[in-house]
Write a protein that binds this DNA or RNA. Sequence first.
DNA 1: ATTGACTCCTGATGGC
DNA 2: TGCCATCAGGAGTCAA
Length: 270
Amino acid sequence: MPELPEVEVSRQGIEPGLVGQTIESICIRTAKLRWDVPTDILLTHGHVIRSVTRRAKYLFINTDVGSVILHLGMTGFLRVFAQTTPLKKHDHLDINLSNGQCLRFNDARRFGACLWQAKDADPHPLLLKLGPEPLTDDFSLTHLFELSRGRTCTVKQFIMDNKQVVGVGNIYANEALFLAGIAPKRAAGKISKARYALLSRYIKQVLAAAIKQGGTTLKDFSQVDGNPGYFSLQLNVYGRTGAECLRCQTDLKSQMIGQRNTFWCPSCQT
DNA sequence: ATTGACTCCTGATGGC
DNA sequence: TGCCATCAGGAGTCAA
């Protein structure tokens, strides 16, 4: 289940195989993922891939005429290999390169997306409301505190809201709240500046650490080379319902908060 | 404006 | 062994 670290690891994985290569053709095998796949992406035929970038959990394959935007959703992953590689179930899209290689997008649950951003056009509507990138200075230690005043939703829902900060998915929200010692059900508007500074620092730390280790592998994710990520080995709370807290041996709790499974230590997190 | 419920989809899982 | 029913989950959309 790709979160920001997994998307960034995917970006780093596909970038060397794509940049400088010419797009020979694009094969849309599945016309509708989360939304209809825009045929505008075919405009990239014959154009060179200048860069592969990321904004939130969106990946951009950038050419001189525009960008193919990919979102991995829940179960999406990307591979770069020979165009002759046999198809597997749920292989939805190929970007064929003139060197015989291709970028292939596979997504079992089709929560992923392929979008089009024309060069010099207004930004895609989906990108307009996104908050700052958590790993940049745009996401300051006081950012969350300032936005949270008066908010009654839980702190967990607040940090997972893309309008506040992008890329904090369920796994890392649980982990960052544990490290900061904040109970996930606490109201966002009633948490002190000092605690938000701590939480912000841990959000940055946990995301950066996960990227460095190649992302978290649970059920679905693998790196572009097919190897798993290794971060799951050091999850403190996610998925550990009933197990003992690694810090204080208290039994961890879990509960659905805002349709998402939430894990915490009732002793360490207050 | 904010919040919560609903929705898309398929594979994994568990009960019988 | 097989067949349901249930669930996970990113994030947009809609209703309240």
